[in-house]
């Protein structure tokens, strides 16, 4: 090193510099962490996306035994007006030991005649086909998962029942999802 560089092992100087260096590094570290947040948060959903995070759906036009697909946050929502048989069939299987993801039908609906689920296969995100499969519910064409009339997984690679969106009945004919 150059001759102008003084001996760096002089006791006092090193100590004070170290304290100052540590304090400054810590302070600057806090600042950098704070400055990083906007760069991370900008990738989160923006205000206009969040504003669409609830949807109101009129269900008065869905006859018994029929189903519609609504969208919420860009995802398909299956709204099925179940028949008495479908409800009975779902309830009969409540304690079936074959259930992969055991859950009672009553725990999956707010009103028995309306089954409302997110229509995305819990395996790898395909959209199951309605009125198909071995259990009268849905069948996912991608890898062959079968769902029953409570949208519970019964056969195939999917690990979970179809998820339920948060929703509530604003009236007998109007539901709010989200």
């Amino acid at each position: 090193m150059a001759a102008t560089n003084p001996d760096e092992s002089k006791g006092e100087g090193v100590e004070r510099r170290d304290f100052l260096t540590i304090a400054t590094t810590a302070f600057a570290g806090v600042g950098i962490a704070g400055a990083a947040w906007p760069f991370i948060d900008q990738m989160n959903p923006s205000a206009d996306v969040l504003a669409l995070s609830s949807a109101e759906i009129d269900i008065s036009g869905i006859p018994v035994g029929q189903e519609i697909t609504a969208t919420w946050r860009g995802k398909p929502i299956f709204i099925r007006h179940r028949t008495e048989e479908e409800i009975a069939k779902a309830r009969a299987d409540d304690n079936n030991p074959d259930l992969i993801d055991p859950e009672t039908d009553a725990a999956r609906v707010q009103r028995p005649e309306w089954l409302i689920v997110i229509g995305i296969c819990t395996h790898l995100g395909c959209i199951p086909l309605r009125y198909q499969g071995d259990y009268g519910g849905w069948f996912c064409p991608c890898h062959g998962s079968h769902y029953d009339t409570a949208a519970r997984i019964r056969k195939g690679p999917a690990p979970k029942n179809l998820y339920l969106p948060p929703y509530k009945f604003l009236s007998d004919t109007l539901i709010k999802i989200g």
């Binding site: 906007p38 760069f39 948060d41 900008q42 989160n44 923006s46 205000a47 206009d48 996306v49």
Partner: peptide
């Protein structure tokens, strides 16, 4: 304008 109004910290970017 969406960046300025809706994106989180978009105005800052």
């Amino acid at each position: 304008e969406k960046i300025m109004r809706d994106v989180n910290y978009g105005w800052l970017m």
